[in-house]
Nucleic acid binder design. Structure first.
Lengths: 201, 201
DNA sequence: GTCTATATCCGGATAGAC
DNA sequence: GTCTATCCGGATATAGAC
């Protein structure tokens, strides 16, 4: 058998992931999860201790997914600039926002160390990876040595997370694209060869 | 009489503003508002048609406040770089996030054109102002002419909005500071005189 | 494992007394 | 203008049948 219908537990987790992305933690009720999963109350409380437990499982899975998606781009071929570019330009539905980043605006997530942990870990991991890539770029002469790699990586990540905010405010993905392209132009032309940064025409 | 105790209506609006900032729209109940304002149900439904109406009033007031706070910095003295710097480095409690930007992650706000409008307007206004300042900088030779002012302004705004995400994820304002300093270093040294951008040491 | 029934409290709003 | 009483449905969870 190649295909096995997913378990009820899996459907509960996947429904929760979707709803957390769409509506956040405080905006997501067990009832909505059950309806989407096509399950009854009993199933949920059999597999999970309650809403926080199910949400934690869902958030962890989303965090794993995000890492698995992004890692190949950061590890990919190309110059440091090109790898950052690949991360910034990867396909996204900007209006949906970041399934991890959006949780930072959720009061109940921030109030719980357990729920916040996978969010914190994911973003910290991503920032560390970006910091390493910027550092590489400096060593290779592609980026200016005065750059603080940790600060640049924060600005790169913020272009993405902040880009989502601009896009959702305006109701258009264009604002997200503007943000990442703006940041890319600040990072330099990304051309191979000797560093030529922001030359005046 | 120099001082007049604020009206019940005012207390309701102010309590709502606080709660919207802390917990968002879906996380804020009329009951919580009433408790914080020290008012009863009747007062609220006398002055407002319901939760959406009160929230709209509160959001509009917050939007006005934000403009009034930021405008002097953008209009202030100094070079274009310095005015952007003043905006980016203004005093903030980074862990609280942006009282307007955070609303973009609220599903009920985004679903309502009426509630989203003041959010959209405020962010669009801010971005336009920043775009104008970048344009000025280009004309004065402080910024490279290849910069797309609209994209740079988006990146500036995103550094702030995204910085809040990083700060709240990590539970520390340091990540916000890193984001804005990273962006400032990308914008250039901000020194007077001829443009010297990202010189290698 | 999954279902339905039940319980309790909260969200959001209305009615009417004062 | 403000209060309390009341309403109905939803949020979250437990109990126990199948």
């Amino acid at each position: 058998m190649y295909s096995e219908s997913v378990s009820t537990s899996d459907r509960l987790i996947e429904s929760t992931r979707e709803l957390l992305w769409e509506r956040g933690y405080v905006g997501t009720s067990p009832k909505a999860i059950l309806e989407r999963a096509g399950a009854g109350q009993g199933s949920m409380y059999h597999h999970f201790r309650g809403k926080p437990d199910l949400a934690l499982t869902a958030i962890r899975r989303t965090a794993e997914d995000l890492r698995a998606t992004v890692e190949p781009l950061l590890d990919g071929p190309g110059t440091p600039y090109e790898r950052i570019e690949a991360y910034l330009l990867r396909e996204r539905d900007a209006l949906r926002g970041c399934p991890i980043g959006r949780l930072t605006m959720d009061p109940d997530v921030i109030a719980s160390d357990e729920l916040r942990a996978p969010v914190d870990d994911t973003i910290a991991w991503l920032r560390e990876r970006l910091t390493g890539i910027v550092e590489e770029g400096k060593q290779q002469g592609q980026f200016p040595l005065e750059w603080d790699s940790g600060e640049i990586s924060a600005a790169v990540l913020a272009a993405v997370q902040g880009g989502y905010v601009l896009a959702r405010a305006s109701g258009s993905p264009a604002a997200f694209d503007a943000s990442v392209r703006g940041l890319l132009s600040l990072l330099g032309p990304g051309l191979p060869g000797p560093p030529e940064l922001h030359e005046l025409a």
